[in-house]
Structures are given as structure tokens and as C-alpha cells.
């Protein structure tokens, strides 16, 4: 180390000021061996294999449940509006009631998951476009009253005109309710959720449609359930395609969607949804029992998909590789480009 020292006594008697040179640490050479002893060797570097991200503090029952119920409610409202307009009262009533129940359930989940449920109303302090949860709150605020009113009028058969208006309003807001949750989870640093932000709304829309269809199939008479069956089919196919695209685009980050708890749930969801959709188009067209089964399968499928996505996300934030590796790759790519230019 060829440094000349400047350790002269401060002759001027002034109190020392931090000198312009500073302490130098030993040069660190290349490190041959990998991580710390006893921590299994990893193919990337991390801090004792600990996650970079904090564990998402949401419980799956509440939040995955909320994703499912929100989707169900929103899509059901839209379906209900359509059924209403087309004069399929049973289907419409079932969908409205379903939407209202799902809405209630989703609100319960949402509030239940808060660390301070009593402060739920603080959500209304602000209107934040940057926060999908804030937007969601306002969307739900706009959606809740008409959806509730629609259900109430449908069940009690009173105030039909108001009911119709509420139904249409809820039906128009419904898709937003069903899909904004995709932005909600994508707007995080959780690798699986964030990286999938392009497809996620479609997965959710599809899954919501499938579940709303499922509910219609399950609850409405076979004769009125045609739109529900079609919706279920479209939803199932959309979801299937979107998930496939998502997995392909995510690359290594898609692993939690295929492996582990998330993977199992995703596969189960896919199986149930597709089976339900196919059954709906076939046996369920005639047989009420089969219809109930198909509807249930669709609902269960949607539920599984949401839980699957939820858990895959958690898994991807627990394992630092999903955070570090893509970022490292991105940096290297940028560097590569930088050095070329």
C-alpha cells in the first residue's frame, strides 16, 4: 500500500476536521469459494439464502378468498345485468344474489385481513390512483350499493325500476371489480405477481367469468343457464390461454406456478375449470345434477386458481432466487448492451 501518511500533529491547534482522505479497507480479491460454510451452496448469491422481500402478511383465506369472491361478484353482476336485460329472471336473480353474497364475503375477507380492522374506513381518506387497493376501495364503494340494491330488489321483487337501474350499474362496474384485483397483486414486488402483470387481468377476468358462469349453471334452471354456460366456457378458455402465456413469458419465475403448493393448486384449478366448462357444454345442458356438479367444479376451479396464484406468489417471494436472478440477468443484459454501444 503506497500511501503517505498525513498523521502530523495538527500544529495550528485547530480541532481536527475530517481529512480529505479516508480509511481504506483492504482490497478484496476474487473469492474462490461460494457462500458461507454450512449454508448449502447456491447457484446465485444471497444473504444466507434469506428472502430479499418481506413475507406478504396476507392470509390465503382472506386474500385469495377475496380475489375469488371479488371476481365472482363482479362477473356475476355483469352476467346478472345481461340476464336481466335478456329476460332470464332466474339466472338474473341467482347471479344478483350470488354477487351480493360474494360481495359480502369479499368485504368480510378484506376487513378481516386488516391488522386494524376497526380502521377500515381510513381507506376512504384518500383517492389514490397509484394504489390499486385505494382504487379498489372506491370501485367497491361505487359497486356495493347498486349490487346490494340489485340483489335486494331481485329477492324481494319490489321496486323493479330501481332494481333494473341498480342491476345495470352494478353490471357495468362488475368487470372492474373482477379485474382490478389483478392490478392489486401485480402492483407488488412479488416476482410471480408482478412479472405477470400483463396476463394477470386476463387470468382474473377469465377465472371470474368461469366462476360466475359456474354459479349461474349451478343456481339457475338448466333452461335459463345458456349464457352462463357460454360465459363459463369463454372464461375457462381465456384463463387457460392467459395462464399458459403467463408461464411462458415468466421463464424461471414461473416455477412456483408449476411446482409446490402453488403448482398443485394451479393444476387442480385448471383441471376443475376445464372439466367444469366441458361438462357444462355437454351433460349439464340437460341434467340438473350434472349442472350442479359442473357449476361447483367451475367455482372450485376458480377458487383453486386464485389460491394457486396466491401461493405461487408467496413462494416466489420466499426464495431469493426469484428476486435476484431476473434482476441480475437484467443488469447483465443492460451492461452487455452498454459495453456494446
Amino acid at each position: 500500500m503506497s500511501r503517505t501518511s498525513q498523521t502530523d500533529v495538527r500544529l495550528d491547534g485547530t480541532r481536527d476536521l475530517r481529512p480529505d482522505r479516508e480509511a481504506i479497507t483492504r482490497p478484496g480479491g476474487p473469492r474462490a469459494r461460494g457462500e458461507r460454510l454450512m449454508v448449502p451452496k447456491a447457484d446465485f448469491r444471497s444473504y444466507y439464502g434469506r428472502p430479499v422481500l418481506q413475507p406478504t402478511p396476507w392470509s390465503d383465506h382472506d386474500i385469495a378468498g377475496y380475489l375469488f369472491l371479488g371476481g365472482l361478484a363482479g362477473a356475476s353482476s355483469t352476467l346478472a345485468a345481461a340476464a336481466d336485460l335478456m329476460g332470464r329472471p332466474h339466472l338474473a336473480r341467482a347471479a344478483k344474489a350470488g354477487a351480493a353474497c360474494a360481495l359480502g364475503g369479499s368485504l368480510y375477507c378484506l376487513i378481516h385481513d386488516l391488522g386494524r380492522p376497526a380502521r377500515f374506513l381510513n381507506m376512504l381518506r384518500v383517492f389514490k390512483v397509484t394504489s390499486p387497493m385505494s382504487m379498489g376501495t372506491w370501485i367497491l364503494s361505487a359497486y356495493g350499493p347498486p349490487a346490494g340494491l340489485a340483489a335486494l330488489t331481485a329477492v324481494t321483487c319490489r321496486f323493479p325500476r330501481a332494481g333494473r337501474a341498480a342491476t345495470v350499474t352494478a353490471g357495468l362496474i362488475g368487470p372492474a371489480v373482477a379485474t382490478y384485483t389483478a392490478a392489486l397483486i401485480s402492483d407488488t414486488a412479488v416476482p410471480v405477481w408482478h412479472d405477470a402483470y400483463r396476463e394477470m387481468p386476463f387470468v382474473f377476468a377469465g377465472s371470474a367469468a368461469a366462476s360466475a358462469g359456474g354459479l349461474g349453471i349451478l343456481a339457475a334452471p338448466v333452461t335459463e343457464a345458456g349464457p352462463a354456460r357460454s360465459l363459463a366456457l369463454i372464461g375457462a378458455l381465456t384463463e387457460y390461454t392467459a395462464v399458459r402465456r403467463m408461464e411462458r413469458r415468466l421463464g424461471m419465475v414461473a416455477r412456483p406456478l408449476k411446482k409446490g403448493r402453488g403448482g398443485v393448486l394451479m393444476r387442480l384449478g385448471k383441471a376443475l375449470t376445464l372439466t367444469g366448462a366441458v361438462a357444462a357444454q355437454t351433460v349439464a345442458r340437460r341434467d340438473r345434477t350434472a349442472a350442479v356438479a359442473a357449476g361447483a367444479a367451475l367455482l372450485a376451479g376458480a377458487l383453486c386458481t386464485r389460491f394457486g396464484i396466491f401461493h405461487a406468489g408467496l413462494q416466489s417471494s420466499r426464495d431469493p432466487r426469484y428476486t435476484v436472478q431476473p434482476q441480475r440477468a437484467r443488469l447483465e443484459k443492460a451492461e452487455g448492451e452498454g459495453s456494446r454501444s
Binding site: L53, Q54, P55, T56, P57, W58, D113, L114, G115, R116, P117, A118, R119, F120, N122, M123, R125, S131, M133, L184, D187, T188, A189, V190, W193, G313, S317
Partner: peptide
């Protein structure tokens, strides 16, 4: 103010 929605946690 915080109501513990936990959204900020996975966002960081």
C-alpha cells in the same frame, strides 16, 4: 392512520 392492510409490505 395505518390500518394494517399490509399492501405496502409486498410492494417494497
Amino acid at each position: 392512520i395505518c390500518n394494517g392492510c399490509g399492501y405496502c409490505v409486498p410492494a417494497c
